[in-house]
């Protein structure tokens, strides 16, 4: 059995802010293996984004445990969680969320700057990944000068440039058209298959689900079906 990058045991998340508590996750048991591409799918309110956020250390479960790369997130302080996200997890967001005042190459460099990587190595790695992702001609442009697809590809470059253990993508195709989505998914497939980056996506998009190696469906805070039980292979 391959190494488990993510382990979730009995993960429960209840939002008690409103008068009626909302059970976003109900004792989810779940694991992601190294090199996997898991697509968390399900209708709105199914708990897929909540699970993604908990795996990414952005939210904490009310009950249960989560570990990433062998590190129990429940035992980490906010600062340690922040450090873990910086070192081990790459994020791709629905709204791209690039830093608007930095150019594409500076955006990619920024995460390495936070990690303390030297200037010349930063620049070399940032230019290298932009080149590999076909973005070498837009390195000096700011996000406002890029299309949605270009921004999302830069966001992917930013997320993977530090060789994270895990890439988390929350609705990465939500703001993209079909052609651009396909380009993005090919990019993620390339990263997953050729560079061994483990990916977890949360999505409504059937095209994303089709690309994932392992579709996992959630409903009402519980796993309804898990592609790992079947021989799920992308056929896009």
């Amino acid at each position: 059995m391959s190494e488990e990058v993510v382990q979730c045991h009995g993960v429960t998340r209840v939002y008690a802010d409103d008068a009626v508590p909302v059970h976003a996750l109900r004792g989810v048991d779940f694991a992601v293996h190294k090199g996997d591409w898991v697509s968390l799918a399900g209708p709105s309110g199914s708990g897929k984004s909540t699970l993604l956020h908990i795996i990414g250390g952005l939210d904490r479960p009310n009950d249960g445990s989560v570990s990433v790369d062998g590190e129990d997130l429940g035992g980490l302080s906010e600062a340690q969680l922040s450090d873990l996200r910086l070192r081990k997890i790459g994020f791709v967001f629905q709204a791209y969320n690039l830093i608007p005042v930095l150019t594409a190459v500076e955006n990619v460099e920024f995460i390495m700057q936070l990690q303390g990587i030297g200037a010349s190595e930063r620049r070399e790695r940032a230019l290298g990944i932009l080149d590999r992702l076909g973005l070498d001609d837009i390195g000096d442009r700011r996000p406002g000068e890029l299309s949605g697809g270009q921004q999302q590809r830069v966001a992917v470059a930013r997320a993977v440039v530090t060789d994270p253990v895990l890439l988390l993508a929350d609705e990465p195709s939500a703001n993209l058209d079909t052609a651009t989505t396909k380009e993005l998914l090919e990019l993620l497939r390339n990263i997953n298959e050729n560079h061994g980056v483990t990916i977890v996506t949360a999505t409504h998009d059937p095209m994303v689900m089709g690309y994932a190696k392992r579709p996992v469906n959630l409903r009402d805070g519980a796993i309804e079906s898990d592609g790992s039980t079947a021989d799920a292979s992308p056929d896009a």
Partner: peptide
């Protein structure tokens, strides 16, 4: 269970690098 052994973001060279980035971004 392995411990996080990566260098802390609070180390001096990192703070200096982040400081320079912050000045530009600001």
């Amino acid at each position: 269970m392995s411990e996080l052994t990566l260098p802390s973001v609070a180390s001096t060279p990192v703070r200096r690098a982040v400081g320079r980035a912050l000045i530009t971004m600001a």
